Amino acid sequence: MRQLFFCLMLMVSITAHASDAQRLKQAAFPAQAGELILKNQAVLTYLWADVYAAALYAPAALSARHAWDQQAALRLTLYYFRDIDRNDVIKAATATLERQQANARLKPELDKLHASFRDIRSGDRYALDFHPGRGLELEINGQVVFISRDDELARAYLGIWLAPGGLSDELRGRLLK
């Protein structure tokens, strides 16, 4: 009986891993975004449903973790597999930022950022592009819809995925490995 259990668990694990590989292929993240290089990619699954694939880009000379730690240029791209109401996205982001104790001074800029969100449809791409001194840009399907020159806002918002206590420790670990 124990052997059957382990065989079933192995099959589920292999199937899930194959599914991630298929999902990442579907997301088709390019190897490069401007001067940044694709470092890592992963799929966020919630309650057995794949929500999105995430790709993290950083300078070629730095690992993803070092780029995050050194506040170097980063690009986080999300490819969505599901339709999601914009209010649900804003609610999750707000709860995560509160849990991470983001600076209250950022609220007006966060409100502007969130105002640029729209309902997500399967196949949409959102990208957060950060360059020190230039701040943060949000792209939706390749179109820049928000710009802030506030590096602290960029750090806080990228922290939703990359800082401790974010949306998913497993996703964070995969992106920063």
Rank of each mutant, 00 (worst) to 15 (best):
E139C: 04
L128K: 10
E137L: 13
Q143L: 10
L128E: 13
L153T: 08
L128V: 10
E152T: 07
A127K: 10
R118H: 09
G133D: 03
D129C: 06
S116T: 14
L153D: 07
D151Q: 00
P164G: 13
I120K: 14
S116P: 01
V145C: 03
I140G: 00
F117Q: 08
A163F: 00
P164M: 07
G159R: 06
R125F: 14
S148Y: 02
L136E: 02
L153H: 05
R134D: 08
A115M: 00
I140N: 08
L153E: 03
D129E: 15
Y126A: 10
E139T: 13
L128G: 15
I140C: 06
R118E: 11
I147K: 04
Y126M: 15
D150T: 12
P132M: 05
G142T: 00
R121E: 15
R155H: 15
Q143Y: 02
S116Q: 14
L158V: 06
I147F: 01
I120W: 06
G123M: 09
D129S: 13
G133S: 10
P132L: 05
A156V: 05
W161M: 08
R155K: 14
I160S: 02
D124Q: 10
D119P: 04
G165V: 09
Y126P: 01
P164K: 11
G159N: 05
Q143K: 15
F117V: 06
G165M: 14
H131P: 02
A115S: 15
A127D: 10
Y157M: 14
L136K: 12
S122R: 15
Q143M: 12
L136V: 14
A115F: 00
